[in-house]
Design a protein around this nucleic acid. Sequence first.
DNA 1: GAACCCAACTTCCTATAGGATTCCAAGGAG
DNA 2: CTCCTTGGAATCCTATAGGAAGTTGGGTTC
Lengths: 240, 240
Amino acid sequence: MTTQLPFRGVRELERRGLRDRVYDLILELLLEGDVEPGSRLSIDTLAKQLDVSPTPVREAMVQLERTGLVTREALKGYRVAPPLGPDQLAELFDARLMLEVEATRLAAPKAAQLLERLRVAHERHQECADRIVEAMDAGADVPVRTTAEYFDADSAFHRAIFEAAGNRYLISMHDDLGAMTHRLRQAVLRGTSDVREAHAEHARVLDALERGDADAATAAMRAHIQGVRTRSVRDEAAGS
Amino acid sequence: MTTQLPFRGVRELERRGLRDRVYDLILELLLEGDVEPGSRLSIDTLAKQLDVSPTPVREAMVQLERTGLVTREALKGYRVAPPLGPDQLAELFDARLMLEVEATRLAAPKAAQLLERLRVAHERHQECADRIVEAMDAGADVPVRTTAEYFDADSAFHRAIFEAAGNRYLISMHDDLGAMTHRLRQAVLRGTSDVREAHAEHARVLDALERGDADAATAAMRAHIQGVRTRSVRDEAAGS
DNA sequence: GAACCCAACTTCCTATAGGATTCCAAGGAG
DNA sequence: CTCCTTGGAATCCTATAGGAAGTTGGGTTC
């Protein structure tokens, strides 16, 4: 029977080198946020901790350099990238604003296939937001699992738009900024209003796309990114 | 005296690992265009040819993956990336259009410091163009050295704008597309009119920036990229 | 007391070797 | 004649070892 063919397909896709798995592990380690910015990332130490040889670790680090999460100095090794300064923050938002608006503009005419997926992501986003607000209102600590799901849902919404735009270079650029954006999200999540506002802004983008109004969609996306920027700098100031 | 300090600074910057040198060599090899698209790039073979061990070659290949010049398949090795298809070409130009226009928009207010450098690059561009036109009119083969200088001058013009824009993420994105753009330039350089038109389009951008007219500058840049796109597809059709 | 120098340790970087996988070609069955 | 199988060669991938550079701490000199 051919019913098991997809199985094989998945298994084929899962066949990845050790380097890729090491990459994922270190990436996860960095995104958890438990590592001190500026601290050294010793190749040999990481290799021992992960119980592999230094070679695949070294390759993963080259790949990680691209994300901006680690910095390299020849003959001196790798370090966890320092936190984003104010100027770097501004540049990141300028770049992201350009990308997201352009992606929305390109995706708008092809909204037909996009909407279904976008609604699913949006609903999941809402569910996660509800859980976070509920936990925050109760004064309890928000579980790491919950915030991770929230970030994932938020990310899925934007990613759907980029994939609908159908430009592999835009997607690549978006992914490159993904790690940085993730670091930001963690910092932004301070109050319940942030969650509500973000979701409402997403809703306006979705609404405009449903109406087929491309200009309104790009404007709504612009407003969303600007909103994130505003909340970021505000929370940045309040947090420090 | 401190007059020799810059010397030390330069020497410090030159201190790079073997991996970086290997990267440059392979990159140069790929940009020369002498390699067949789709052909395999054996790690061990490259290592022997460059007289180094496979490890730094492996690291360089990971870095090269980012440029899009090589593709990797786990456990199967690296290959020279296939030539750009029509759809990929369109996406590349869309992305570049977005980047260059945004960079021009950001750079326009800071034109004061930019203009000097831009004029130098523009003049060098003209000199190179003159030499190419002269050689083409004489029916002689254009030396590789000459075309390389022309590409470099063209690239310097755009790079000056990006650096004036002062956004490290935009610069990074631009660099990522650099390798692909280079492959395109080689294909575009077919007739003397292309050289003249490109230079004239640059002139309009420079002129608008000198007048301090940001809108005109972005419009001129948009027209320039569109012009390159038009010439690319035309030559693509004529060449095949 | 401060700056400089030096030695030992740690870490990075490169080279070499061996196991695992893929590719290709030759041979045999249908 | 076509398709499948199978063996060997080439290649990728990972592990280990040693040389080179950086880092830290203590001692010395001004």
